[in-house]
């Protein structure tokens, strides 16, 4: 069976505009990403700022134009699909945005906001009061919230409104951009539990975009790690957490310190800052920050290599285990 969503060699290119007469350049925010999202499964895309993860998500949602490659949804090509035809698919492919309150139109009540999908998709003749109540109950908000405005609710509540609105039309694929950003630790779990529950109930496929590995650990089946617009590692979540292949994945794991002062930390400190995507390093693009860099890394571009159930883009996968062996 083929996957619900198949992304193949997708590039997203932005035009850089200088002054009126200056030459126009381009930057590639996403450079050749391929991944599959299966029906009813969760795929987590992890990366830091500038990794291109949000751009990729928006390209799938038809909000950015993919300049190369192919995005197949149930076998239908989404790239270059005219908006009029894409509109039909927007019932099935929905997106939740990073800023929970900022993504809600400020002058509309919560009721209008969560029932908007019906009106937009020509189903405004339904009993919208009933639908609003159903959706609020689904995400665990009291019915009184229907009359409130976005500025009158908290960030966590606004997230729930975002979920209600995204799932109003019983979609097939939910793209969640940083679903826990800005939430307190004690509420983050609630959000992830809600997504997990609704996924089980609705058979939804979820693509989660986040910078926080801890967020994807429990809720995803597969994770992909992005660095400078490329996937550098992909694999079953447990596998990636247990045996990261790429040093960048290892660094991300190590950068989430446990709340334990005596924890034996495997300190993988990256040197320097991420390079600008305008000046991509030669060879492996991670070599400028890699703690295990080898001479070959600055000249040869590593290819996408399958390993176990996953794949990575590193000349020396699991190099950290060797270093550890040497150290001990």
């Amino acid at each position: 069976m083929s996957a619900l969503l198949q992304i193949r060699d997708v590039f997203v290119r932005f035009r850089l505009r200088g002054g009126i007469f200056s030459s126009v350049g381009t930057i590639d925010a996403v450079t050749g990403v391929s991944l599959d999202i299966e029906e009813g499964k969760t795929y987590g895309i992890v990366g830091e700022s500038g990794s291109g993860k949000t751009t990729l998500a928006r390209a799938v949602a038809g909000l950015h134009h993919a300049s190369e490659g192919s995005i197949l949804y149930r076998g239908q090509e989404l790239r270059d699909l005219p908006e009029a035809e894409f509109r039909e698919l927007r019932r099935e492919i929905v997106m939740m945005f990073q800023d929970p309150i900022g993504s809600l139109s400020p002058r509309l009540t919560i009721k209008s906001l969560i029932t908007e999908p019906f009106r937009i998709q020509g189903m405004g003749d339904r009993d919208l009061d009933t639908e609003a109540k159903r959706l609020l109950t689904m995400v665990g908000l009291p019915a009184e919230f229907a009359a409130r405005y976005p500025y009158q609710i908290s960030g966590g509540q606004a997230r729930r409104v975002g979920v209600a609105r995204a799932l109003a039309l019983d979609p097939k694929l939910l793209i969640a951009d940083e679903p826990t950003a800005g939430l307190d630790v004690s509420i983050q779990g609630e959000m992830l539990n809600l997504l997990a529950r609704l996924q089980d109930e609705m058979g939804l496929a979820i693509m989660i975009i986040t910078h926080n590995l801890n967020v994807v650990r429990h809720i995803t089946d597969t994770v992909g790690i992005m660095y400078m617009g490329k996937l550098v590692e992909e694999g079953p979540t447990e596998e990636v957490f247990a045996r990261p292949q790429h040093p960048y994945t290892l660094a991300l794991l190590a950068a989430n310190p446990e709340p334990d002062p005596d924890a034996q930390l495997m300190r993988v400190e990256l040197s320097g800052e991420p390079p600008s995507i305008l000046r991509r390093p030669k060879g492996c693009e991670f070599h400028t920050r890699c703690p295990f860099v080898q001479p070959r890394c600055s000249t040869d571009v590593p290819v996408w290599t399958a390993a176990g159930e996953g794949a990575h883009r590193c000349h020396f996968p699991e190099i950290w285990t060797r270093e550890e062996a040497v150290a001990s």
Partner: peptide
């Protein structure tokens, strides 16, 4: 105690039901 339990860095075993502090 509850806050520490909620911290995702603390939870090693994979679960689809993360601990939370109910209420406001």
């Amino acid at each position: 105690r509850a806050l520490l339990e909620c911290d995702p860095g603390h939870i090693k075993v994979r679960t689809r039901n993360l601990p939370t502090i109910p209420g406001n």
